[in-house]
Design a protein around this nucleic acid. Structure first.
Lengths: 215, 215, 215, 215
DNA sequence: CCTTAATCGAGACGGTACGTCGTGTCTTTAT
DNA sequence: ATAAAGACACGACGTACCGTCTCGATTAAGG
């Protein structure tokens, strides 16, 4: 076990090497957590979900695996937490332009953006790992079948406003129709790999959704 | 090769142990290939895509990793080949009952079945690994965005028949609408984890698709 | 980590199987190291250097390859470490019987014994792998060309004692002559495969060495 | 097994590719054998004994493993055959200059040269593999303990000539002394890794051998 | 001259071991 | 109590060679 010590970890010498800041105080709690999530976020954009490893994140955060596992338990949970923190939030307030079509376009664009940021690879990876888990649902921006997500609520709100204006009739409208635009958006994200064009959103609204509800 | 036989490996020998049938002749080509795919298919249903390993398949097929790698190179390719062989083929002939609604129900049920058999986990896993790869497209039963798949062609055929009967007008109908029912079916597979109910198929046809095309 | 436990690996469990003692606490550091070297030593005498494998040693030590590689990096280093620990040390103190011939016989017998224990196969294997490496030199009992080994020093001491008694003249005596007996001993080990007989040692001393120095 | 066929073996097309000469007639017997040994010899000097593989030799000779195995059975046998063919033969006739010292110097230089060419690594490798085998003996230039090799015979001849001239007395001269110079030469080859200097040969003759026999 | 037997070329096969990587757990030390 | 550091048990990765075997194609020899 003599000549093995090649990967000399530059730490011992009290002085501190050029790279390592002389070791500030030991991190813990919030600060440490943030450092890890930051590292995970960086790692995610550097190597992608598939090649992201707990080990890599720990190294990048200059901590060790156990610390990560104590908090998140596995890769998917870590990534979910990372997304929850760093994903751009969709607009909180529901659009209300006085016109259903406009409202819908705005809403869908707002939903599409964070999904684009995450990228299909990560979404696929998460879903592959967390199938039949309800973890996914905890990222409001991401898939949540059946759940009364914020997106769905926003959609309903928009529709009710339109109904008040007499643009549509909502009675005995299948819930599936209400979630239809968002579903198609998500499907597009999962299946294609190019960013969602505005044309796609227009088609969903003009060629599919409006014809159904505006009978 | 004299002193080689130290770690006496329980060679075949005349006796033959309890487990090993005296080892028929060395398998090759088609026979061996089938054995491996069979093993992969079994493994897939036993442990699922995520926990399927090349090693496990090799052991189950009573061969070794190199033989598997020589043919398929990685897990995804192996699984794709397995699905191509063992997945129930969707009905080859397009339904023609003289009624659009009936035709569509039959078609969608025929498409849904193989997807169910594969299971969402495998599909997700494959897509996560083969994102932006065209491998997936080689399983006709599975996702193939944009491709003129057999399913889409069947759908078009049905619609043309309906047009001849005067049930619908196809001129300037967005292609997105044509693929809409199949897309929704796939989305359902990816997102939910229960088998697709007939009610779902009915909703897709009656509440979404027909209202659009039967203006 | 829920659905991970599919391939139920016969975990330790309270019961414990026939073979595994319920697994004491996880071994580390010195204890583990000793277990590995012990296993290597056993493996060495069971299958010989040629057929010794890191994998085999790891299994025998009930640990895994990575642990072994972390310490020794390759087979040769592992075996060297093993020999350093388990090889019988040659007598530390230089013989001093008041008679050169006797001293030499005692010394050579002391040197021959550990070499016999290692066996020619291992020595050859090590030398084949570590040619032009200086690793070998770290086993004092084994070959070390040119090095001022303990053996050589002992030899010199004996000769100086003999010179004081007037038995020999050392001035302008070629160093090659001093190392001659030991060299011949080593050569014998490398070339023949039977244990070195006392007759051989006698010949080296009486027929070769003494005639040269006792001119 | 579709897209696997990357290693397109350029052979089929009647035309013949740029690299492969249009495939002369199929080799066999002597010609093939020579091609293999030539390949082995090249491989030996390129990668050394340790990293020489049957597979590599077969590829280099543009044939296949089975052909090699049919003839030599294992690496050691192949290398031995290669050395027998390509090693420079030591001078066939025994030196006779009328002076023992000169004769010995000439003889030893003649013996040393082929050993140098082979190199210590190969010798070590062969010995490690063929310990306690008598195969080695079939290379006259290499080690052959106890055997009445040509070298030993030459040595005896030289000494008898010297005895006739009255330079030495051979009666009751231990055989070990006769083989002593050659043994030391071999030991030097095995242990050191630099080429044997003429000074070394002089020391063996002048400081060790002659003092013994010229009492 | 034509058939037969041998053996080459090509490469797949069953097998062992390689050395590495990542997971998730555990221990030790220090704060 | 828990961060930091890192070792450990475990499992799988993908590769390299081993020595054997199968399959056709080609070649030399024998009737």
């Amino acid at each position: 076990m003599d000549e093995q010590k090649i990967k000399e970890q530059s730490r011992v010498g009290g002085a501190g090497s050029k790279v390592d800041p002389p070791r500030e105080t030991r991190r813990r709690g919030e600060i440490l957590e943030t450092a890890i999530l930051q590292a995970a976020w960086d790692e995610l954009s550097d190597v992608g979900y598939t090649h992201l490893t707990i080990e890599g994140v720990a190294v990048r955060a200059r901590t060790n695996k156990a610390v990560v596992y104590r908090r998140w338990g596995n890769k998917a949970k870590l990534v979910v937490a990372t997304l929850q923190r760093y994903l751009p939030k969709p607009p909180r307030d529901v659009p209300d332009t006085g016109n259903l079509r406009n409202d819908m376009l705005i809403l869908l664009r707002g939903i599409a953006q964070p999904l684009q940021t995450v990228g299909a690879e990560t979404i696929q990876g998460l879903m592959a790992e967390y199938l039949s888990k309800d973890l996914i649902a905890s990222i409001p921006q991401i898939m949540h079948p059946g759940t009364e997500s914020k997106s769905t609520i926003a959609m309903k709100t928009i529709l009710k406003q339109a109904e008040l204006r007499g643009e549509v009739h909502l009675e005995n409208l299948n819930p599936r129709i209400i979630s239809l635009p968002i579903d198609l958006l998500r499907y597009e994200i999962l299946i294609t790999h190019e960013p969602i064009s505005d044309r796609t959103i227009h088609e969903i609204v003009d060629d599919i959704f409006l014809p159904i509800v505006q009978v």
